[in-house]
Design a binder for these strands. Structure first.
Lengths: 369, 369
DNA sequence: CGCTCGAAGTAACGCGCGTTAGTAAATAGG
DNA sequence: CCTATTTACTAACGCGCGTTACTTCGAGCG
């Protein structure tokens, strides 16, 4: 798999390995005691200054001297020791199926950024129940266990698509917040996208563009995403005095091929002008990708002849389809950030606003409507 | 942004928040001492058993009793305390631009899995120099700093696309391995994809399918990816006694639109059969996506009339284009895993095989050739 | 001058654990 | 029976730090 070569550019220098001695515990690391000695004060004084305690009385001058010593020695606090002594870690853990990548990442990013803002550290553990053969409890449990060994103060559990989940039992030992999923037992607080409102805003956009016959390319009708988005669609139509024609709703595989086939079925069911929809609401972007092909194959132009709107905002698809796809975004980053905020409230003993928080799915205007 | 609603299903139970008292440091956490007391032995004995020391002599019976107590009490070691006492953390840190998502993730996954195997923990910190306004050193330095505070034993630094980077100075304090990038100063060991071999295998595949006139949709010619892939392309052609016709190489923006335009230019330059290439080598998948459109627009079929091959294997594109795109994969997971292995060697004081390790880019056969 | 009181600091404990040096009992060897 | 080993443990130290309780010193007050 991997083959080795010489470095192309730099001279074959004698390996820049920092530790020359083999595995010697090179006690590199200046401690508070070193700083104290350098500044000519007690370790306590250093501790007081570094945690800038209010009620500690350290003269400006000593404080200055200490801070200078910190700089000079390059002192860096030992997070582990600090956690041990203070009995709090400032760490949160997040366990997620990083394998089905593109989604989880944005959740992590949102959470990461928010954690950073509140001076907390996010430990990421893989869950990877990719093993289709039943819930791969082994790895997931181990992940949570590992995080608890790090003494995380709270846990985030994120799914790649909106659904019900069973979390490892140990997760109940610390405050836990679910992101993009909800507890099948209904015990844990969760944060999910507002699918219904999302479906609504998508269809409202189509209505606003003058479309009244709208074809719907549906997902597996049982998953929360499909239920919510379709409900929102119906609401929007109802408000415009319209009804959803069941003939125009076709379910397919959640892939480009599935979308292609569903679009073909819808488009070929009617003649142009004789009931054929002028717009397609695809319940995810991958299906929209397939729908594009079906539309183009029939010599129709997007959006002039047929408008297409997607859902999910999978950047790699939506932003690169031609024309670029107007779609509804899943608010992954926001959910991640809100998850951390919620966790912060929880660990601080503050009440949270709601057991289940829903986050808006914003419409992203591009050029397919 | 976020609006709150009541939970839909579960009864409005009185919030399952574990800590009822507000922010009280609920010393939950059974320690070794608790286990020792329960088992009627000394804490040392427990420690010996749990780290199953070779030369410690603990009778089978006591050992059994201790392990039972561990189970019964649900003892969980405190990683921080352990690190403090043993002066080693078993943690690695990885800093990466998680923002430009789709790539970084696979590196992380590969590293994560490998770390898990070697019983190490991967701390992930964001670098996000997304700020286009110059290298956002601030955040990146802080990230490395934070990781060092956790006393990670080594650092991984991953880029989202193959290029030269400048790492924060502090990174030199511990063993550091670069992934998908290389040190501009040439000091740090790195792991990069073998672009040249990748370009070669792509073109060899086209040659094998009988194509002799091959159009190349090039990236910005200056980046390492373009240089290497094109070089590989030339090598493959040379071996078949062919030469790369400069007329057939068109550079474009690394986007679908860029690929579309480049493909149009190449296809319209010649008549069919009169010098028009029968295959397109797109230096990345996004450009291939645009090329597809150009080909289809001209009524040509893929792969019958024109074969298309990509590079990068961006799943969301390659696996959903119609027909699915044959492409060369960037070995992100492998690079991540190899990074951890290399780091393990480094921290163990063992020599590494090479200053720069190159990882193969495998060809992924789909249906566009 | 004796006293109090705040300012400026310090000594010392303990967080949970790895580890070294030691101890007590059982066994072996002569 | 007495000493050398081995077996089976335990006491105690220290990792780096937060924190509480204490000490020392000078200023202010009557």
């Amino acid at each position: 798999m991997a083959k080795s070569t010489q470095a192309p550019a730099p001279a074959p220098s004698p390996a820049a390995s920092p530790a020359a001695s083999p595995a010697a515990p090179v006690h590199r690391g200046v401690t508070m005691a070193d700083v104290a000695k350098a500044a000519g004060v007690s370790r306590t004084a250093v501790s007081f200054v570094l945690s800038n305690r209010e009620n500690a009385s350290i003269s400006e001058e000593t404080k200055h001297r200490i801070l200078e010593a910190v700089q000079a020695l390059g002192y860096r606090p030992n997070a582990g020791a600090r956690a041990l002594a203070s009995q709090r870690s400032d760490w949160y853990g997040i366990v997620t199926e990083i394998v089905t990548a593109p989604f989880a990442v944005d959740i992590i990013k949102g959470a990461q950024d928010q954690a950073w803002l509140s001076r907390r550290f996010l430990l990421i553990a893989p869950s990877d129940q990719a093993d289709a053969t039943g819930p791969n409890r082994g790895m997931e449990d181990a992940a949570v266990e590992k995080l608890l060994e790090q003494r995380v103060e709270g846990l985030l559990y994120a799914a790649t698509y909106h659904r019900a989940v069973h979390v490892p039992k140990s997760a109940y030992e610390v405050p836990t917040v679910l992101i993009n999923c909800f507890d099948a037992d209904g015990k844990l607080p969760s944060i999910v996208p507002d699918e219904r409102a999302g479906g609504r805003v998508a269809v409202e956009r189509l209505l606003q563009a003058g479309h009244t016959r709208i074809g719907v390319i549906n997902l597996d009708p049982d998953i929360p995403a499909a239920v919510g988005r379709l409900e929102g669609c119906r609401e929007a139509l109802a408000e415009a005095g319209l009804e959803l024609d069941p003939e125009l709703v076709v379910s397919g595989h959640a892939t480009a091929d599935g979308g292609y086939e569903a679009a073909c079925e819808i488009l070929d069911k009617y003649q142009a002008g004789a009931g054929r929809p002028t717009a397609l609401f695809c319940l995810n972007d991958r299906m929209a990708m397939g729908a594009y092909d079906a539309v183009k194959e029939r010599g129709l132009a997007i959006p002039q002849d047929i408008a297409v709107i997607g859902f999910d905002n999978q950047e790699l698809i939506a932003a690169y389809l031609r024309p670029k796809l107007t779609t509804v975004a899943l608010p992954f980053e926001e959910m991640g950030a809100l998850g951390v905020q919620t966790l912060a409230s929880l660990t601080a003993g503050q009440p949270i606003t709601a057991h289940q928080q829903m986050v808006d799915c914003p419409l992203l205007e591009r050029y397919s409507v």
